[in-house]
């Protein structure tokens, strides 16, 4: 079976000479949630734009569900829905007619029941007759999502869907994305909120300066790069590590007031470590474990010269 999206050597040089994509190879599988992460200006929106027809690629190839762009644009585009990063003011159009327009535009026959369901799912049904310009920013974003869903896309692109959105709406959106995935919709989202990718994505791609630095399963990535630490606040500060602990991946920080054990690299076990501490009369008043977030991983990746 072909991939939902398949990019080979995708390049984009803008008219002003700026190279925003420098040879992207990427396969996105059917039914997965793929998060594209990267700093401002990395090329996330450009990549999405190239797949969705807003940006004319200057090199490489794009296939959507096996259909090549731009040659088979009809088959390809019909499968894709897009919620762009920039909000669009549709002005005087009512919510319902705006969503109806979107469905028609994609060549689909009217489906009032389906549109009602979409609007209800996004808590927009009782606003259906309001002009979009009278809605709040968060509501308008919901309208844009409703418009993207109106033609029942198989692949949905969400370009920073939760930027400037309150916590409640963000949770709603996450729930909605999961429901869509359960129905088999492939989702590609970009975000600056790493907790979002961590929470939602099956796979993560990190892009920087037009290059994909890595593409990996989120859990593998966490396991490979994620660090788990055991931190102990000591009763008495130590001036140096007792020789007895030398075999452990342990560090003394905060002017000797804290011991940090790197759990992932420790192969002797926490229990053994704690017994050694007791044997050396080292008392601690508190302990906690921490896991590095995707954010830490991300910052680390970008710091390393690619």
């Amino acid at each position: 079976m072909s991939n939902a999206i398949s990019l080979r050597g995708l390049e984009k040089t803008y008219a002003n000479g700026h190279q925003a994509l420098r040879g992207i190879d990427l396969d996105i599988k059917h039914g997965e949630i793929f998060a594209l992460l990267g700093p401002n200006g990395a090329g996330k929106s450009t990549l999405i734009g190239a797949v969705c027809g807003l940006v004319k690629a200057t090199g490489g190839s794009i296939h959507i569900d096996g259909h090549e762009l731009p040659r088979q644009y009809r088959e390809a585009r019909a499968k894709v829905g897009l919620v762009p990063q920039e909000m669009v003011n549709e002005g005087f159009e009512s919510v319902l007619s705006s969503v109806r327009f979107s469905r028609g535009l994609f060549g689909k026959p009217p489906a009032p029941k389906l549109l009602e369901q979409i609007l209800r799912d996004l808590s927009l049904w009782n606003k259906r007759d309001d002009a979009t310009m009278t809605l709040s920013g968060g509501m308008r974003r919901r309208v844009m999502i409703a418009k993207a869903l109106a033609h029942e896309p198989q692949v949905l692109f969400l370009d920073e869907p939760t930027a400037g959105v309150d916590v409640e709406l963000r949770r709603d959106m996450w729930a909605m994305v999961r429901r869509l995935r359960d129905r088999g919709v492939t989702i590609v989202l970009t975000t600056h909120y790493l907790e979002e990718a961590e929470e939602m994505a099956d796979r993560v791609g990190v892009i920087s300066d037009g290059r994909l630095l890595l593409v990996e399963n989120k859990t593998d990535l966490m396991a490979r790069l994620g660090r788990r630490q055991l931190r102990l606040q000591l009763q008495q500060p130590l001036t140096q590590l007792p020789a007895d602990l030398a075999g452990f991946p342990v560090e003394l920080v905060d002017q000797g007031r804290e011991l940090v054990l790197d759990v992932a690299r420790d192969n002797q076990g926490i229990a053994d470590f704690l017994r050694r501490l007791a044997a050396n009369d080292i008392d601690f008043k508190d302990l906690h474990t921490s896991e590095s977030s995707l954010e830490d991983i991300f910052v680390e990746l970008l710091r390393k010269p690619a």
């Binding site: 969705c52 009809r74 585009r77 920039e86 669009v88 003011n89 535009l105 060549g107």
Partner: peptide, 14 residues
């Protein structure tokens, strides 16, 4: 001007 053209461009329109 408004940016709504994104929808026209992303649709399977000839």
């Amino acid at each position: 001007y408004s940016g709504a053209i994104y929808e026209i461009l992303s649709a399977p329109l000839s």
